[in-house]
């Protein structure tokens, strides 16, 4: 039928984006970003010198790096407590959030729990950390527990809403084709909800990182980068404080970029086209 071919031709034409053009635009974007970062670093170095501000508060980049080198071994020793707490809390928050979100999202009778978790999202959970640290001591366990609590809420909420927003028609047509409850979950619900779920993981990941650092800053005996930041602040070692902040920023960047890449990948997969391969 000629009309069909015509329509198809137009559609595919509309989708086709010439590859080289995309490539260069991505490259210029990256170039701009690097330029902005370089400019900021230069400002960091130059502005404090020009201002000749008291060195206890504002220090140039080079002084921060020197302080970092001086304090190298305590900083390296603090990496593992922070990193391991983040990883454990991420695992817990993601697992519980995804499973809980799927259970709540698929059963209408549990929907009311969403309201409770939604309210929890608005409460500044930091207030419970002192309690947790009294019950469990200020070590790794209380850190992981608090960060998990902090991170699980957005994962659970987004997963549940992702599952609920799956098209009723997909569900119904899979049922009519004889899908078992298990097949419905693995072949329809999970792939359909995946892009939303991954964006929830990203949100929760950010909160877990914040929570771990905050715990460490609040409790001087818990160890980790946050504790170190507080210690250097008390010692008026501004250079080392800045260096530690850089380390935390690096953590955040690596995590966010990784999840962002996964998110794009998943979103790309669910809308994959022949003329437009997933970038990367």
């Amino acid at each position: 039928m000629s009309t069909v071919d015509d329509v198809a031709g137009r559609q595919v034409g509309g989708f086709a984006l010439p590859e080289p053009e995309r490539d260069t635009s991505r490259r210029t974007l990256l170039g701009w970003r690097l330029a902005v970062v370089a400019l900021l670093l230069v400002c960091w170095e130059v502005v404090p010198r020009l201002m000749s501000a008291p060195s206890a508060f504002v220090v140039p980049l080079s002084a921060s790096l020197r302080a970092g080198a001086d304090q190298w071994s305590p900083i390296v020793e603090s990496l593992w407590p922070t990193l391991s707490a983040i990883l454990c809390a991420l695992l817990f928050a993601w697992l519980v959030g995804i499973v809980g979100g799927f259970v709540i999202g698929t059963s209408p009778r549990l929907r009311f729990l969403l309201l409770i978790f939604g309210a929890l999202y608005a409460v500044p959970l930091v207030v419970v950390y002192p309690l947790i640290s009294v019950w469990l001591g200020p070590g790794q366990v209380s850190k992981v527990l608090f960060a998990s609590l902090y991170g699980v809420v957005p994962v659970l909420l987004t997963t549940a809403s992702g599952v609920r927003s799956v098209d009723e028609g997909l569900h119904r047509s899979a049922l009519s084709m004889g899908a078992s409850p298990r097949q419905l979950l693995t072949k329809v619900l999970i792939p359909a909800a995946l892009p939303v779920v991954v964006s929830g993981l990203r949100l929760g990941g950010g909160l877990v990182l914040i929570a771990v650092i905050v715990c460490e800053m609040l409790a001087s005996t818990s160890g980790g980068i946050g504790t170190l930041i507080t210690a250097y602040r008390v010692q008026f070692n501004a250079g080392a404080v800045y260096f530690c902040i850089l380390v935390v920023l690096a953590f955040a960047l690596v995590m966010d970029q990784t999840l962002g890449a996964i998110e794009r990948r998943v979103a790309g997969d669910s809308a994959k086209t022949r003329t437009q391969p997933t970038p990367g």
């Binding site: 028609g169 047509s173 009519s176 329809v188 359909a192 809308a271």
Partner: peptide, 19 residues
């Protein structure tokens, strides 16, 4: 319940899996 070996359904909005 559905009888996938005997009864098939085509819906108004095709209900294809987009991925």
């Amino acid at each position: 319940g559905p009888q996938p070996d005997q009864v098939a359904v085509a819906f108004q909005d095709a209900c294809l899996l987009p991925w």
